[in-house]
Each structure stands twice: as structure tokens, then as C-alpha cells.
Amino acid sequence: MIKLKNVTKIYKMGDETIYALKNVNLTIDEGEFVSIMGPSGSGKSTLLNIIGCLDKPTEGEVYIDNIRTNDLDDNELTKIRRDKIGFVFQQFNLIPLLTALENVELPLIFKYRNSMSKEERRKRALECLKMAELEERFANHKPNQLSGGQQQRVAIARALANNPPIILADEPTGALDSKTGEKIMMLLKKLNENGKTIIVVTHDPNVARFGNRIIYIKDGRIEKEEVLIRGDYDK
């Protein structure tokens, strides 16, 4: 599903050269739940951005669903993000003037334009809100009328709208209390059990243990990996 070969990412800041990633090799199979863990500045968000086709490596190769992304233009990368990847962010990134339902409908409008009716979009958005375990009575609430946990569920529903095989979550519990965060992680675990490939970036070891594999990154390098048996997240 995802393969990185000798990936290096370099940023130039004046005369200074910063290696955000150094010679990273990583393979993530279809249906895995992988946690990427490391301290602030370790390169984990850069790694997620490259997997999500939001950024390109300075060196090395990136494959998403057997497609080499290095030489794709912006339109081709947009299509991969639209069709293959759903994004969930720490700060939810919902549009405040739109209802929960309208926020989830947005990716459908961008993808299908005039080929999907308003009724079909609404039906699909409601299905996604249900999958994200948000009660239908909140569908017409705007973000400021929802709790943090409810907003994150809307963000997850939006990520599911185009039925992508991959969900990328960048610190999805960072803005939530521990109890609500655990519920969000249980939801992501359920989506994984239903076939989605889930990749979560976190600095929280309790969150990381919801995955089946933890990738530890430090100073731009993969330091080690840990394979977890199913059920470790309950401990």
C-alpha cells in the first residue's frame, strides 16, 4: 500500500541545512494500523506529509498503492489525495460557517461535482457521520455547537467521505481530554478492523499502542519498530 525507499527531506533556512528525514525506508501493508511516534522535531509530521503527498522528498522514492509519486504534477498528486487518502488533524480543520453535514459533503462536491446529486451527497455524508458514531441530530450543528470529541468525529467522517483506503491522522487526540481521546482511537481501531489502513502520528505512548505496529522516529531516522499483538491497546 505504501513504500518509502531511502527517503531524505532537506530544508534550507538561510545558510543552515536541516535534515527533517534521513534515509528512511518504510513499508506499510494494506490493512495495517501503524503508529508513528517521536518527540517534537523528530520528523514524524514530515514523514506523514510525504506519505500523504502533501510534500515531496528531496531524495528517495515514494509509492502509494504502487504509484510512484515523485514525478507527479500537482493535479496528479491532488487526485491521489482525493481518491486514496483521508486526513484527520489535531485541530479538526472544520469550516466554521458550515454544518457538520456540509463539512462532510465538501470532499464529495470536489470529487463528483455535477455527477452526484444533492440528495446522494447528503445520504453519503449521513452514512459517514454514522460510521464516525456521531448522532444524526448533530448533523446540522456548526462546529462551535459541538464538543471537541464531536468535532473530531466530524473530521473523521469527512475523511471517510470519498471512501479512501488510507486514513492519516496527525495527533488526532492532541486537542482532546484523555477519555474522549480514547473513544476517538477506538473509532479509528474499528475503521481499521473494517479494512482501512490507518497511520497515526503521536507523541503519546498510550495512543501509539492502539496500532499493530509502532515506528519510533528520532532526529529524522527510524530508530526502531515494535510489533504489537492485537489487544495491547486494552492494557
Rank of each mutant, 00 (worst) to 15 (best):
M116N: 11
E119L: 09
Q91H: 14
M37W: 10
D73Y: 07
L134P: 01
S117Y: 08
G38W: 01
I67W: 04
E135A: 13
N49S: 07
L77A: 04
A139S: 15
I67C: 06
K79F: 00
K142N: 02
P143D: 07
Y112A: 00
P57Q: 12
N93G: 01
T69W: 06
E59C: 01
A125P: 14
N75T: 11
D65Q: 13
N93E: 08
L101K: 14
K118F: 12
L98S: 04
K111I: 06
S115E: 14
V104K: 10
V88P: 12
N93Y: 14
L48C: 04
P143V: 07
K44G: 07
N93R: 09
G41N: 00
Q91V: 06
D83S: 09
H141R: 15
L108P: 11
S35Y: 06
K84V: 04
I64W: 05
I64Y: 03
F110H: 07
R137E: 15
S42F: 07
T78M: 03
A132S: 12
G41E: 00
R113F: 13
E133G: 01
L108C: 11
G60N: 11
R82T: 06
R137L: 07
G38E: 02
P96D: 14
L106C: 05
E136L: 12
I85T: 12
D71Y: 11
E135C: 05
G38H: 01
D65G: 04
P57N: 12
M37A: 08
N70Q: 05
Q91A: 14
L77P: 02
L98I: 02
K118E: 15
I67P: 03
M37D: 07
C128V: 02
K56F: 04
R68T: 03
F89W: 03
I51M: 07
S40Q: 12
A125D: 13
T99Y: 06
V104E: 12
V34K: 08
D55P: 03
K84S: 13
R137V: 13
I36A: 01
P57D: 11
K123V: 03
F87H: 11
D83I: 06
D55T: 09
I85G: 11
N103P: 06
I109Q: 08
K130V: 03
R122L: 11
K123I: 09
Y63F: 15
T78H: 00
S45N: 03
G41W: 00
E119H: 03
A100F: 10
L48V: 08
K84C: 07
D71A: 10
A132M: 08
H141Q: 13
V34S: 05
E102I: 08
A132R: 08
E133V: 02
L54Y: 14
R124I: 15
V62E: 04
P96G: 05
T78L: 02
R122F: 08
V88S: 08
T78D: 12
L108I: 09
N70T: 06
D55H: 05
A132Q: 10
R122N: 15
E105T: 09
M37N: 09
R81C: 05
G38I: 01
A100P: 10
Y112I: 00
R68P: 02
L47Y: 05
I80T: 05
K111A: 13
